[in-house]
Write a protein that binds this DNA or RNA. Structure first.
Length: 432
DNA sequence: TCTGGGGTCCTAGGACCC
DNA sequence: TCTGGGGTCCTAGGACCC
């Protein structure tokens, strides 16, 4: 499915949200380069960009993988803000190869608006300053309501119906009307467009309140075993993410559904499991997730997607224990720690619960994935002077092949010893 | 005739964001 | 053949408490 496009792809008419098979002719005709998403690579590059930005301004809110707000308050005394940001842009490009655009304004909403023009209009060189800008009203009038940060599809419909079509008109609309129809969120947006800051910059990295892990299957399946594996797999992923932010879950939701784009019989359902004691243990969570699945699974449907969600998150240091808890939590924590350490040092899924599947036939397709150039030794970019030497292994190894090599290798004894070494190194207690 | 005032927690749904 | 994944905030209503 198309989830991001370059300017060139937009130009030849590649639409957002279309499944690839529907746009094959366009792709062929214009030789459009198609890539499966590679979040490891994007995460690493994002981190490099953000680190670069911190050189210029320590007060930074990392808003998403590709956006950040910098608080330049006070910088105007020593710098021309536009020049300063042109320099930021230049440096990010030089250090990371990533082109960025910068919008400058007194509020976040206006900065986002400015950014749109910085990005689109070549003449602005990627930077656009709306502070004391004589053309500010002109730009606001040229911005459709649907392009305002905080105005989505539904509000666009509502506003258009009421004769409000651009950002300027929205900023001038009646407060009571906005409050009534768009709640305080809408009113905050309107205030921000009037240059009154209502959305503060959040420098803290608040921990997540919910963690979801779900995926569409590469192929629909009615096989309960596959679905059970999927549930265990997604639970593993979510639990690892949760442990990284030192949280434990009190609630676990399991959900599954058939393919809504098909004419086949439809079914979707979810169930919320209350955990007796907040936990971050993968094995315990898998147990509950499987119990949840038992409750909602129905035979005879072609399932397309399953997932789990962890909520009611509390800090691991502040969990309420139970007097009647049958589990040995100390032992469980030791196992979990070791599990995470091995996977951190040896690579993801070096050790995993068999419940989460080995071959995972239901795996999502990602046939066109780019290499993890910056985070995997096996996938480093190679540069050759002259002709490329003959090599057995291809540079863009498929994950399956990597796993295959690993497990099929003849020297399994050596492999076992390595594992043993690592385990004793990490935890010298022979009991564990 | 006339029936208070101030809270919490939970769930579901709706809007938005990247 | 084939249609993404992961989040946040706000509101309203029901059930309950003192």
């Amino acid at each position: 499915m198309v989830i991001a496009r370059s300017a060139e792809a937009k130009e030849v008419g590649i639409p957002m949200g279309e499944p690839l098979f529907k746009i094959k002719p366009l792709v062929k005709k214009f030789n459009v380069q198609v890539l499966s998403s590679n979040y490891t690579l994007y995460g690493d590059m994002s981190h490099r960009v953000m680190t670069t930005l911190e050189h210029f301004c320590p007060d930074i809110e990392i808003y998403s993988i590709d956006e950040a707000f910098l608080n330049l308050h006070g910088f105007e005394r020593r710098h021309d803000l536009t020049d300063y940001c042109i320099n930021i842009r230049k440096t990010v490009l030089q250090w990371t190869g990533i082109p960025v655009s910068v919008g400058i304004a007194n509020t976040k909403t206006l900065a986002k608006l400015a950014n749109r023009y910085a990005k689109r209009n070549k003449e602005h060189a990627g930077v656009m300053n709306l502070i004391d800008n004589p053309d500010k009203e002109k730009y606001m009038k040229a911005t459709l309501v649907e392009d305002i940060w905080g105005v989505g599809r539904q509000y666009t419909k509502l506003l258009t119906k009421n004769g409000i079509t651009n950002a300027y008109e929205f900023s001038q609309a009646n407060d009571k009307w906005i409050r009534k129809h768009m709640t305080v969120m809408g009113l905050r947006t309107a205030f921000e467009l009037r240059d009154i800051p209502c959305i503060s910059i959040d420098y803290s990295h608040p921990s997540k309140k919910a963690i979801i892990s779900s995926r569409s299957f590469g192929k629909v399946t009615s096989n309960k075993q596959d679905i059970k594996e999927g549930v265990a797999y997604f639970t593993t992923i979510a639990a690892e993410k949760m442990r990284k932010q030192k949280s434990a879950a009190t609630l676990l939701t399991v959900f599954l559904r058939t393919n809504p784009f098909k004419d086949s019989p439809q079914y979707h359902n979810g169930v919320l499991c209350k955990l007796p004691v907040p936990t971050d243990s993968t094995s315990e969570l898998i147990t509950y997730a499987e119990k949840g699945l038992e409750q909602i699974f129905r035979e005879g449907y072609l399932y397309h997607k399953v997932g789990i969600m962890l909520t009611g998150l509390v800090h691991t240091d502040r969990t309420q224990i139970s007097m009647f808890d049958p589990e040995d939590r100390v032992k469980m924590a030791t196992v979990t720690d070791l599990f995470d350490k091995i996977n951190k040092e040896m690579g993801a899924r070096t050790i995993f619960y068999a419940a989460s599947g080995i071959h995972r036939p239901w795996k999502t397709q990602a046939n066109l994935k780019s290499p993890k150039f910056t985070t995997s030794w096996n996938e480093l970019l190679e540069v050759f002077a002259g002709e490329k030497p003959d090599r057995k292994e291809d540079q863009t190894l498929d994950l399956d092949e990597i796993e295959g090599e690993y497990f099929d290798s003849d020297d399994n004894d050596e492999y076992d010893d390595t594992i043993k070494d690592i385990v004793t190194h990490l935890n010298p207690d022979p009991e564990i």
